[in-house]
Simulated assay, not measured.
Amino acid sequence: MRFTPWLRRAAALAAFSTLSWAHAQILIGQTVGITGSAAATVAESMKGAALYIDHINARGGVGGQKVEIVSLDDKFDPKLTLDNTRILIEEKGVVGLFMTRGTPHTQGIMPLLDQHGVPLVGPSTGAIALHKPVHKYIFNVRAPYQREVEKAITHLNTLGVKRIGVVHVDDTFGADGLAGAQLGFKANSLEALFVEKFDRAKPDFSAIAPRVATKEPQAVIFIGTGAAVVDGIKALRGAGVTGQIVTLSNNASGGFVKALGDQARGVVVTQVFPSERSLNHAVIKEAMDLARARNAGELTPAMVEGFVSAKVLVEGLRRAGAKPDRAKLHAGLESIKNWDLGGMELNYSATDHSGLTFSDLAIIGPDGRFRR
């Protein structure tokens, strides 16, 4: 197997120029769906992380050592995620792992993290199972999906929207999102108008969409990933569903908006970071300035997630001291308390690896931008 350095792969995917990695000294591993249904959002999150990692390496790296993130394509397939993780840990000898994507994918590698004592920073999933109970080697950055869904239902209820249904992927991610929806319904004294689930491997909405249309929902919470959600939204609209569509932050990318095309306008997407155009948060301004300096285009929510997660990784490496290893990185991450990463405070401890708690809602405007 030929290993392509992460940022070179990111450059190919996102048309983003990066530094040479020939002399990198700190190896961090990543297994992620460079291809597959989540590819568009993955490319943007990698691009955002690259902004910060490039910046740090240009200034000499961490403790004089440059950071290399070696990324392998798991095609958004949990089995490949597990295989890639074994390669990264056992063959490549990475110090830590970074920004895996997908709930079943991340849950599937937890035994390997335990076995080898490898910290995972910033998994790009808000599964509550990664927060509670605390997993020793998983350091979350973003808030849980359940908080996102509950907030969305509460917001809809305040607008007088009561007839709300749920369409979710039939896997652990979908079950987690559904649990959050149930909490939201209960908190607002509502009941789900309907609950429909679709197959993760072969999503088919030909029967689901007409059934949903007969219910005449005012809103549909759509829990799934990338291409499947795009196809599902188009199928719902094609069947005559006119209610509000709400999906989760894992779809908060420009690629998702582009794939939706004419159906994008008005879709609500939950968010777990401040607006990519908010100058009120220093971390956003920092990312904007670096993006502008590298002609990387406008920030997207997915880029912000990658950027912030990279900042957390680098802070953990700094606190790990000279010649960081897996144990030192773990200790360094757990020492992060009351850390201001730019208008957002992050805390870890031995009993709390949840990271940030921020959540918000955005709607896709006619210009394809996320509006708060």
Rank of each mutant, 00 (worst) to 15 (best):
H23L: 08
G332A: 12
Q107K: 12
A11Q: 12
K285P: 00
P274C: 13
L341Y: 07
Q263L: 06
A320F: 08
N84D: 15
A12N: 12
L260W: 02
V70W: 06
G60R: 10
R86D: 09
S253T: 10
A10L: 10
I128G: 08
V312F: 09
G365M: 13
G255W: 06
F3V: 15
T158K: 13
G297L: 07
L279R: 15
Q107R: 11
F198S: 06
G180W: 01
A192G: 02
T214V: 07
F98K: 05
T247C: 11
P111F: 08
H116T: 09
K162V: 10
S206Y: 03
M288I: 15
L341E: 01
I56L: 14
H281W: 01
V229A: 03
E216W: 01
H23Y: 11
D171R: 03
I153G: 01
V283A: 14
A219M: 06
I233H: 03
G61F: 08
I138R: 02
L19I: 14
A43H: 12
L341R: 07
G224S: 11
H105W: 00
R294Q: 15
Q218Y: 01
V94H: 01
L82W: 07
K258W: 01
T81E: 05
T100G: 15
A259R: 14
I245Y: 09
I128R: 13
W21Q: 13
P5Q: 12
E345A: 14
L329A: 06
T172H: 04
I336L: 11
A302Q: 05
